[in-house]
């Protein structure tokens, strides 16, 4: 629990619009148990036919080099068991979110999955270890916005209008009006669900990576991916204006400017294939 009662209250109410799948808790227990085998993980996922199909399609998508994966066990070998657990969560969240009319979930997920793919490609270029967590953190980076628009819809709209009118980043106005921003809300929610700090910190500080103690570099990758996504109109983030760079964020990564176009073009092609897998009805 956090020290903010308003934030705790929102997290407590989140179950009405978003909840981790029941399978996630079992997967989490299994992954953390030293005697669990890949087959045990595969057995749990296989109980959910829709999830199994999506994980297999993802494992056979261009993200993993079209690897002819036909079982969840092979997907776990290729992607990693923790990564499959977290992908299962992300895929299930996309499928189950319920939002009020007027909020385009398609645009939201297009932006979020786009951000995840770009972050993964930046991490690959920079030869970072464990690249899947960038994909997952990217997919979930704006989950706090879903909670705000789902549970405090009028306030969320008023904050967005004020940000657009006053030419300020959305998270500035959120901090002023709520005492926390959508990054912090999302990060706290994911921590409440049991996700590890190497994902929750990236979500919490995606607008201010310099504050992410211990995860500055990782968070900067999500920060840049989010901005690239906003600028190149991958879906629609809730920001009308492109978010500013956090101080020294660009210099922190050593990402050559000439690489941005390649990363973007590659991500654009991957998004065309990945998004339908994520969004398709079960």
């Amino acid at each position: 629990m956090t020290e903010s009662p308003a934030l705790n209250q929102l997290i407590a109410e989140t179950g009405e619009i978003l909840s981790p799948p029941l399978i996630y808790a079992r997967l989490n227990d299994a992954v953390n148990h030293p005697r669990t085998s890949i087959n045990d993980i595969a057995q749990i996922i296989s109980e959910d036919a829709g999830l199994t199909a999506r994980i297999l399609k993802l494992a056979n998508s261009p993200l993993y080099g079209r690897s002819n994966v036909d079982t969840i066990s092979r997907a776990c070998t290729l992607i990693g068991t923790r990564e499959v657990r977290d992908l299962s969560l992300a895929v299930s969240i996309i499928q189950s979110a319920k939002l009020p009319e007027g909020f385009s979930l398609m645009n939201h997920w297009r932006h979020s999955v786009g951000c995840g793919i770009i972050a993964r490609n930046i991490a690959t270029f920079l030869r970072e270890p464990s690249i899947e967590r960038y994909f997952i953190a990217g997919i979930l980076h704006d989950i706090g916005l879903l909670v705000l628009f789902g549970k405090r819809s009028e306030q969320a709209r008023a904050i967005k209008q004020a940000a657009d009118r006053q030419l300020r980043p959305l998270y500035h106005v959120e901090l002023e009006k709520l005492g926390f921003d959508h990054g912090r809300l999302g990060g706290e929610l994911l921590a409440h669900w049991g996700l590890p700090a190497n994902i929750t910190s990236l979500v919490t500080y995606h607008h201010q990576p310099s504050l992410a103690e211990g995860f500055q570099r990782d968070t900067t990758i999500i920060h840049l991916a989010d901005i690239i996504c906003q600028a190149l109109v991958f879906g629609e983030s809730s920001e009308f204006y492109i978010s500013p760079l956090d101080e020294q964020a660009y210099d922190r990564l050593d990402l050559p400017l000439s690489e941005i176009e390649n990363i973007f073009n590659q991500s654009d092609r991957q998004l065309q294939e990945i998004l339908p897998i994520m969004m398709a009805a079960a």
């Binding site: 204006y241 492109i242 978010s243 760079l245 176009e261």
Partner: peptide, 17 residues
């Protein structure tokens, strides 16, 4: 217009634009 909150003199944003 979409780049109003950022420093368009920064090479990163020049390239994005």
């Amino acid at each position: 217009v979409f780049f109003r909150l950022v420093d368009l003199e920064h090479p990163f944003f020049k390239e994005l634009l």
